[in-house]
Amino acid sequence: MSIQHFRVALIPFFAAFCLPVFAHPETLVKVKDAEDQLGARVGYIELDLNSGKILESFRPEERFPMMSTFKVLLCGAVLSRVDAGQEQLGRRIHYSQNDLVEYSPVTEKHLTDGMTVRELCSAAITMSDNTAANLLLTTIGGPKELTAFLHNMGDHVTRLDRWEPELNEAIPNDERDTTMPAAMATTLRKLLTGELLTLASRQQLIDWMEADKVAGPLLRSALPAGWFIADKSGAGERGSRGIIAALGPDGKPSRIVVIYTTGSQATMDERNRQIAEIGASLIKHW
Rank of each mutant, 00 (worst) to 15 (best):
G279E: 02
G90P: 08
M127S: 08
A215T: 06
K190R: 14
S57D: 09
Q204T: 14
D174S: 07
N272I: 03
H110A: 09
A23C: 07
R220I: 03
L47M: 12
A23T: 04
W227I: 02
D83P: 02
M268W: 09
I229W: 02
I256A: 05
Q265T: 12
Y103M: 06
C121Y: 00
S68L: 00
E61R: 13
M153R: 07
L89V: 06
F22I: 07
D129G: 00
S254C: 14
D113A: 10
S233I: 00
R7V: 09
N98R: 15
R220P: 02
A84R: 12
Q88L: 11
Y260I: 09
R41Q: 10
E270C: 12
F17N: 08
L120W: 00
S57Y: 11
L73Y: 06
L120F: 04
P249K: 15
K32R: 14
T126K: 07
G216V: 07
E169P: 05
D33F: 15
G242L: 00
H285M: 09
H285I: 04
G142S: 06
R7Y: 09
D174R: 03
S254A: 15
R189A: 14
D155M: 01
L73R: 00
P143E: 05
K30N: 07
S51N: 10
D174Q: 06
I45E: 05
R202N: 06
R91T: 08
G85A: 09
S80Q: 12
E26A: 14
R238W: 10
L111R: 08
V8W: 08
Q204K: 10
L160V: 14
V78W: 03
Q265R: 13
L218Y: 02
R241Q: 04
M115Q: 07
A245E: 00
S221H: 12
M209L: 08
K284W: 10
M180N: 13
L135M: 10
I93W: 03
L135G: 02
A266V: 13
V21A: 14
D161A: 06
P65G: 03
K252P: 05
F13W: 11
A183G: 07
R238G: 11
R91G: 05
D99A: 10
A222G: 11
G248N: 03
D129A: 00
H110P: 03
I11G: 08
F70K: 02
E56F: 04
F17S: 08
G251V: 07
K213N: 11
W208Q: 03
D113V: 09
S240R: 02
T131N: 04
S96G: 13
S80V: 11
T186A: 14
G226K: 11
H151G: 12
T193K: 15
H94D: 11
T262I: 09
D231E: 04
S221F: 09
L192C: 08
D129C: 01
Q97I: 14
W208T: 03
D212L: 02
R159V: 07
H24K: 15
D174A: 05
F22P: 05
D33H: 15
G239Q: 02
K32T: 09
K109A: 10
V72Q: 02
M180Y: 14
A34L: 08
P181V: 07
Q204A: 15
D250R: 14
V72R: 00
E145K: 13
I140Y: 08
R7M: 05
N168Y: 03
T178G: 03
A211R: 14
A15L: 15
R59H: 08
R241A: 04
S233D: 00
F13Q: 05
Q37Y: 15
W208I: 03
E56N: 11
T158F: 07
D269F: 11
R176P: 04
D36V: 14
Q86L: 13
L89C: 05
Q274A: 13
R189W: 13
Q265P: 11
G114R: 03
G141F: 04
L188D: 00
I278Q: 00
G43T: 01
I229E: 02
A225N: 15
L192V: 11
E108C: 07
N168C: 06
T139E: 15
T158Q: 01
L205E: 02
H151R: 15
T198E: 11
D36Q: 13
L136W: 00
R41L: 09
L167H: 03
R41T: 10
M268A: 09
L218A: 04
E195Y: 07
L55K: 08
S122F: 15
F70Q: 05
H94T: 14
L219V: 10
E175F: 12
L137N: 04
Y103A: 06
L196M: 13
L135P: 00
A235V: 05
E61V: 11
E166S: 13
A230S: 06
R241Y: 02
I3C: 11
T198K: 13
Q274R: 11
M127R: 09
A222H: 10
S201D: 02
Q204L: 15
A77D: 09
D48F: 03
L74Q: 02
K213W: 06
I3L: 12
V31P: 01
F17A: 10
A280F: 10
L192N: 02
L197A: 04
V106Q: 12
G90Y: 12
E56P: 00
Q4W: 08
A183P: 07
V214T: 09
M66C: 07
R81A: 10
E145V: 12
T179R: 00
F149T: 08
L55S: 06
R238I: 07
T147G: 09
V29G: 15
V29L: 09
M67F: 04
M66V: 13
S51D: 15
N272G: 05
R255Y: 02
N50K: 12
V42P: 00
E26G: 12
Q97C: 08
G216Y: 08
A200N: 15
T186D: 14
S2N: 14
H24A: 15
G141C: 05
N134K: 04
G194M: 08
A276Y: 10
D36F: 15
K190N: 14
N168G: 11
R176T: 06
G242R: 00
N130V: 01
A170E: 06
D161L: 03
I171Q: 15
L219K: 04
Y260P: 00
V214G: 06
Q4G: 08
K232A: 01
N50T: 14
A245H: 00
F58S: 09
A34T: 11
L192E: 02
S264G: 10
N50V: 12
A15Q: 08
K190Y: 12
T187S: 12
Y103V: 05
V82F: 07
L73I: 15
I125F: 02
Y95N: 01
T107A: 10
S96N: 14
R271D: 06
P20G: 06
L188P: 00
D36W: 15
I259W: 03
A15C: 15
L10G: 08
E169S: 15
S254F: 08
M184Q: 04
F13V: 11
N173Y: 12
V157K: 15
R59E: 03
V29E: 14
E237Q: 14
D250W: 10
K53C: 08
T112L: 15
L28E: 06
G248P: 00
R162W: 02
I283S: 06
G154T: 05
G114V: 03
M67G: 13
Q203V: 15
A9E: 05
Q203G: 12
E270L: 10
P181E: 00
R189Y: 15
I259N: 01
G234L: 01
T178S: 12
A183W: 08
L219W: 04
Q97Y: 15
A185I: 03
L282M: 14
G154L: 05
H110V: 05
L19H: 14
A16T: 11
N50L: 12
I278F: 04
T178L: 02
I93E: 05
N152E: 15
K284M: 10
T138K: 15
G236M: 02
F64C: 02
R189Q: 14
D83V: 03
C121P: 00
T187C: 09
M180S: 15
A16I: 12
M67P: 00
Q37K: 15
I54L: 11
K190L: 10
W208D: 05
D212K: 04
F22D: 07
R7E: 08
A124K: 00
D99I: 09
E61P: 01
R202Q: 15
T158N: 01
L219D: 04
L74M: 09
P224G: 07
L47V: 13
A225Q: 15
A84C: 11
G141D: 06
G141Q: 07
S233T: 13
G248L: 00
P217K: 15
E145P: 09
L120M: 11
H151D: 09
D177Q: 01
M153H: 10
G90S: 12
S2G: 08
N134G: 03
L150K: 00
E210Y: 10
Q37E: 14
F13K: 04
L137V: 08
D161S: 07
L196I: 15
D207I: 10
P217Q: 12
S51L: 05
Y103Q: 04
L219Q: 04
I125M: 11
C121H: 00
P105W: 04
K30S: 10
R273Y: 12
L73T: 08
